[in-house]
């Protein structure tokens, strides 16, 4: 049956489409558009002055720096965790596999106060780190810890199905041709995992940049040192500086839109390469 005919057979296209567009517009698009519209009350010079203010720039630097670092930690340990979960048997594996999603299920405020307590000077982890001169809670390092926690599932969950799909023939061929196990991993398996790894990395990064709840408890929130941009938006709003909050929010919105497009592009490539792999 051709696609054109199917369109006439199944009902509900107009109703479904109309509702989807209406609901999407009311809840997401119009509110975001209203924010962008509100920011045009500022002149370009005013907007620029807010966005490039010392405190705003410092907060963007901290947000991006910590998010990049956390996403990189998650990339390394995500590959390791996904590999171990797919390839190696060990007792309690199903439990551990389910636990990986904890950061998605645990409310960010709970994660925030828990991590702050764990890494504080008298906490379970902090009391062993502090004598070594490593301060985590209430420093930029604490932000990295919180962002690593909330980004942890992304790389693991994008990689797992890809590792499961890798054809054993690939590894057999490499071994037959005389590759050592390490060469097989570096030249055959890792390249196969790379698109998924990049996707997971970008997802974790994009989540980390917008994150608020888990960070504010552990960060210490010192302006210029450990203040993230979402927190700066909230504090501007609390001081009734609506214009300032809006300008910063528009900057964040543009950044998240760029990252979203990057994720979609990567996922499209990932789906294509997996389909090509399935055909081969």
């Amino acid at each position: 049956m051709s696609v054109a005919a199917a369109r006439h057979v199944l009902p509900g296209f107009r109703l479904g489409m109309g509702y989807t567009i209406l609901y999407l517009s009311l809840i997401v698009l119009l509110p975001l558009a209203a924010m962008v519209f509100k920011s045009t009350e500022l002149t370009a010079a005013q907007f620029w002055a807010i966005a490039s203010g010392e405190r705003a720039l410092a907060s963007l630097r901290i947000t991006f720096g910590a998010s990049l670092l956390a996403a990189m930690i998650n990339a390394v340990f995500g590959v390791l965790t996904a590999w171990v979960l797919v390839r190696y048997p060990f007792p309690g594996k199903r439990f551990v596999d389910a636990l990986v999603d904890l950061p998605f299920a645990l409310p960010t405020a709970v994660a925030g106060i828990t991590l702050a307590t764990l890494y504080a000077g008298n906490g379970w982890i902090g009391r062993y780190l502090e004598p070594l001169g490593v301060k985590v809670a209430f420093t930029p390092l604490g932000i990295v810890v919180a962002l690593t926690f909330i980004g942890l599932p992304f790389v693991v969950r994008t990689l797992q199905p890809v590792i499961e799909d890798i054809e054993p023939e690939l590894e057999e061929a490499a071994a037959t041709l005389g590759a050592t196990r390490w060469q097989t991993f570096a030249r055959v398996l890792f390249p196969a995992m790379l698109p998924a790894l990049l996707t997971g990395f970008t997802l974790a990064l994009s989540r980390a940049i917008g994150e608020y709840g888990s960070v504010i408890f552990i960060a210490g929130n010192m302006p210029l040192i450990s203040e993230i941009t979402p927190l700066l938006i909230v504090s501007k709003l609390e001081q009734y500086d609506v214009a300032g909050a809006t300008a910063l929010a528009v900057v964040m919105l543009v950044i998240s839109f760029v990252l979203l497009l990057a994720v979609n592009g990567l996922q499209w490539r990932l789906a294509n390469s997996r389909r090509a792999g399935a055909r081969a």
């Binding site: 999407l24 997401v28 209203a34 924010m35 917008g210 709840g213 979402p230 929010a249 964040m252 990252l259």
Partner: peptide
């Protein structure tokens, strides 16, 4: 359309709250 549906995942929760303050808040539209 799929990208737009995904948009809220990419937006910071703080920005998500702020947009409604800008529409319905005391100084809002």
């Amino acid at each position: 359309l799929i990208t737009l549906i995904d948009l809220p995942f990419a937006v910071s929760p703080v920005v998500a709250g702020l947009v409604f303050v800008l529409i319905f808040g005391a100084q809002g539209l």
